[in-house]
Design a protein around this nucleic acid. Structure first.
Lengths: 227, 227
DNA sequence: GTCAAACAGATATTCGAAAATGTTTCTCCG
DNA sequence: CGGAGAAACATTTTCGAATATCTGTTTGAC
């Protein structure tokens, strides 16, 4: 047994590069439709073919990249239709999750929502330089997760998480992060209040409006090509 | 341009073995929890490591297999809780799909439901030897798909398809295929009738009951270990 | 001048061997 | 006899080279 520094369960190069690729995909570093040549990826991530191919195959199953046989991988393209489909599914899945969580959640769940809401409120979304703050991103993600976490369905949470990530990719693809245009923080507070007070009708209404507004802003912003 | 026999767009070994592995997983040939050693897989499928690893990583993303780093892949385990979770999600997702399809489907959609219903009715589910007929399986799958096909959401259909496959794995894991115990064919006819007549309430009620009954039989059958 | 076949270069796919990690067995000391 | 440590083994993970496929361009026939 290791004495002090348990060397953190060896991770494989595959899972490392999977995480990094996923991050870069969601960040928008890797642009939609862009070809992913293995020579480039090998050089960029400093890694061999095998782990790269395995990671990309996983990401293909998650629809974050596409594989055309014998032609290679590309970053999943974006489209207005796809964004609207994500919006539709998110509204359905997330409100289902909130409804269930309201029904099943215990005190610990309520307390966690209050905690994540507080942490989110205490952090500005943009840094002084106008960049998106990664710490805010993390808290935002944690806040939204806390709402549905008690829904009781593993599979619902899995579907939800993937939809969250896909939506996030679209969001971050816009340079005008759609958050300056409205009082994001207030919306979050209202949602949290409705959920904790177990008002399912209000909560689902507010969460759907929250998602719709983000998409409306994305669609009206002129900097997202193709859409 | 090829003249006559377009040589069916070259498929990679990876996608071939992916299909075969997936089939064997859903068939129940590969038993839950079973270790998937590469030496065995190489010999069994007559293929090298690389395509195998890539296929397994895809299947891991679909939760049909599990990967424990540095220890290898196993067939995804089964449990009563997981089966009930699949049932819950299927009821929600499929009834959502049917509701939408009823709202949006056109004449072609209706016609296709009548066609798949007919084809399903004309085929016995069990061969004379008491085995499950693969052709019936295909028609059954096509029938259920036809109901929701017009829902208009690509992502809903993707989630639905994966849930269908997971449910199918549980179903086929039972030797007493849960179909002798009731009039499956009649249930299918009733569902089709409700959907085509655009009675969303009846259709969603019937489809949920249809799924629940299958699971009830699975849970009451004594031949499925672990459950 | 146009079209198609053939060539050349780029790239993806696959294999076989090397490296790293996990697991079991054996040995030696208390 | 029991348990820690080391060695041997089994297995997964990763790399580098060989193979197959695709893409673009050139050549030659009509």
């Amino acid at each position: 047994m290791p004495t002090i520094a348990d060397p953190i369960r060896q991770r494989t190069l595959m899972s490392n590069v999977y995480d990094r690729l996923r991050q870069d995909l969601l960040d928008g570093q890797l642009k939609p439709g862009m070809r992913l040549r293995f020579e480039d990826l090998k050089a960029w991530y400093g890694i061999g073919l095998s782990p790269l191919r395995e990671a990309l195959n996983r990401l293909a199953a998650e629809k974050l990249v596409e594989l055309e046989e014998h032609k290679g991988f590309r970053v999943a393209p974006i489209s207005k239709a796809d964004l609207l489909d994500i919006l539709f599914m998110r509204k359905e899945i997330e409100s289902m999750g909130i409804r269930l969580a309201i029904e099943k959640g215990d005190d610990r769940w309520e307390a966690n929502i209050l905690a994540t809401t507080h942490e989110l409120r205490k952090r500005e979304s943009l840094t002084p330089e106008g960049r998106i703050d990664p710490e805010w991103e993390a808290r935002h993600r944690a806040f939204h997760f806390s709402l549905v976490s008690a829904c009781g369905s593993k599979r619902l949470l899995e579907v939800r998480d993937l939809l969250f990530d896909h939506a996030d990719r679209y969001r971050r693809l816009s340079h005008h992060y759609p958050m300056e245009a409205r009082d994001h923080a207030l919306e979050h507070d209202d949602i949290a209040k409705a959920v904790v007070s177990r008002d399912a009708e209000a909560a689902t209404y507010l969460i759907k409006r929250h998602f719709s507004r983000t998409v409306d802003i994305l669609l009206s912003a002129p900097d997202l090509e193709i859409l």
